[in-house]
Amino acid sequence: MNLIVVGAVVAALIALRFLKPNALAWTAATWVALYVAFRWGIEPPLPASIVNMFMGIVTIALLAFVSADSERLRSAKSNIVNFLVRKKYTVPLLIVLVALPLLVAFKIYVDMSRSPQPPVTGRTIHPPPPATISFKGKTVDLGAVENPFREIEETDPEVFAAHVENGKRVYHQNCVFCHGDHMEGDGIFAHGFDPIPANFQDATTIAMLQESYLFWRIAKGAPGLPMESTPWASAMPAWEKFLTEDEIWDVIIFLYDYTGHRPRAKEELH
């Protein structure tokens, strides 16, 4: 909900009650108000198809409103007739007569000048990981593996800090270009990708995942994604070819350290 817009629409409708406009003006104002509310009043914005459908229903309902009462219909009709025939409305009438086709032309122009769009496909963002992966010739059991350096976080903070430092180096040498200085998925290359790189600051990414999951994603990259995650729709390289096992675990530590998130605990596996 976009409270400012909705509030403004409600305020405008209340104000309308005090202005006591004629039926036609009231109907037109309500139509516009509802359009504004549907179009801009809801966050995230409604798709155009839905707004069109809603406005279609609103139009039918308002037509029914005007014509359900003979008195109201007569007054609405006379408003239109007055507007069409009275001398004093000649200029606004001309403006409307010119504006209507222009509006339609504008809409067609906007529709036609839209750049081509790829078809929409469903994509699983966090697919279930495989039970095991092979990493540089050895088998890693993703269900059991832990970050080997996580346990020294409490017991040996000095050495742990060195691992964070090493992770920082790895991040800034390899990851920063896409995932960004602040890990918000807005690196200098990010705009070139669709979908955009993951935003680690977002509470729905690494904060929801276990470290072994991150290990899988970093080691195998896009080519290791299962089909439902459309491996071709990600630019993430398979880092097992460039990084050592320790480097991957270090950079994972750095990701959590920098963002302040905690990895998801093992027990919650489902």
Binding site: P44, S49, Q117
Partner: peptide
């Protein structure tokens, strides 16, 4: 919902969180 790519990206899928 029927949505274009940009619209569905804004919604985070083909299901609108409010609607």
């Amino acid at each position: 919902l029927v949505a274009s790519v940009e619209e569905s990206r804004a919604m985070g899928g083909s299901h609108h969180p409010v609607l």
